[in-house]
Design a protein around this nucleic acid. Sequence first.
DNA 1: TTCCGACAGTGGGGTCGCAAT
DNA 2: ATTGCGACCCCACTATCGGAA
Length: 592
Amino acid sequence: MPPRSAFRGARPHIHGGGAVSRGPVSAAGGSIDSVLFHDVAVTSAGVAATRSRLAKRELLAAALRAAAHGGMTGGDATADGAAAGEGMAGGAATGGATTGGPGSDDGRAGEEVDVVATFLSGRVRQRRTGVGWRSLTSLPAPASAPTLTPLDVDAALQTMADAEGPGSAAVRGEAVRRLFAAATQDEQTFLRGLIVGELRQGALDSLLLDAVAAAADVPLAAVRRAAMFSAPSGPIARAALTGGAAALAAFRLEPGRPVRPMLASPAPDVAAALAGIGGPVAVEAKIDGIRVQLHKHGNDVAVYTRSLDDVTERLPELVALLRSLPVATAVLDGEAIALGADGRPLAFQDTAARTGSHDADATGRVPLTAFLFDALHLAGRDLVDAPESERFAALERVAPPSALVRRIVTADPDEATAFFAEVLASGHEGVVVKDLAAPYDAGRRGGAWVKVKPRHTLDLVVLAVERGSGRRSGWLSNIHLGARVPGAGPDSADGWVMLGKTFKGMSDEMLAWQTARFTELADGPADGWVVRVRPEQVVEIAFDGVQRSTRYPGGVALRFARVLRYRDDKPAAEADTIDAVRAIAGGNASGG
DNA sequence: TTCCGACAGTGGGGTCGCAAT
DNA sequence: ATTGCGACCCCACTATCGGAA
């Protein structure tokens, strides 16, 4: 299926799955040559059962080959050819919305490869189904024999996704019931993982792309390259397996089609970030807003989030900025944030609420500011492979200075560190250090971009622990963190106020230790999901900041808390107080 | 009719272990 | 030795549905 154009005014996308007119669970109608959904579930279980990435890749590749082969010999194109044609949306406005490869002839096999690949990457094709963990708590008895095809499952999910308005919950519920009643035990388990997004097979999108390359016998680089320009991987698999390298080459940068954003790796400090790259680097302010990708093609403009959701309607400020640019075509990368009247950043919560709201009033009340930092395409020229310095220079030529992120170029760690301090003083989050020579590595988190943020620490007390799951089964994992409230307890003893939880920063050794320790400290039954403990164990916690909270009684919560170490040298009576926490909240920009 | 609780799905994320290179 | 990936789950927020008030 061709990647869709999401420009406003493009013709509505016809969902390929919708063109399969059979009922959600009418498995009997499936071509006898189709793979069964059961085969996909079995593949997933096999992938989960091995730790070898190469073995996982081979299992995934075999399933993809089977999907491509089985469907093709079936020769039953149904209505898919027509659907693919309809999908070529946009006409002149986007021109290239059709470049998803020559996929119009691959018919049912192509569709099946798309769906199977999507499932094996732990996803479903529907952006939202409206069905989550809670809706799957009571399920019908499993079927005794497998009959479902992958396309049956996709169609059932589409039914759930399409339900809206009064009565939609019942429609979804019925679709869930019918689908799960037609699924075997193995299939039910797999389906649940897919729908709630917790497949836990040790393979997601990256490994799937690896398998696509193996299955189609094309270079991995070609697959990854194509994937840069397609948000979902299903169409990549489809193109590779039915059209080979030539079909993959048709996925390319196109204004109007979102690109997977390049990501940054963390570093503890600026000096380490510079050392990791070597030579002169760009040091940019890191803006604590939401990532935005701006597309312009003549009068058509679009804005996408990091997950490539189209948020054009909600961000008119960015639309206006795009329209004002003195170029006909552009694909730009940046961050959008809500600033106060003094020009300092508001709390991240304010930016998130503003960008998440469809309410026009909110739009007026909390204006957004864009800080651009990259250009992937400008005035007909693709820049993804150009060095960072060149891309930024191109951006500077077209963007107003007020819409550019603050940045310096230096090889001097002291200068970079001074800039870091300056950025923090202006209220922003930190810096991103960039390799000037690196191309835009879409969708990867490599070493070419390195982010540095300041780190707060507090000594807090563990109030409770939760049981771990997955590879942490059998361990006590997620700890509840409390700050001291002097004199608030019975008989003027210290009291404790919870600030949040964390499961991060724990090595296996630490998990083993804390499991024993908190079993010992258990205050009441130790067999529940949450084990309350006597507030005696002090833990040193690192975190990014303090945010306002309606969930916790102190009215504050820690952002991105993680464990540094347990402190046996410090009694609970000397743990940090809630006042110390509030002082941190007052001292940063998000104190509002 | 309006209100409110529960659920789903966004946005922002750090650190560890392990396989493969 | 280094790198990339997936797993582990956190926070706040908005939208939506459906039942309670």
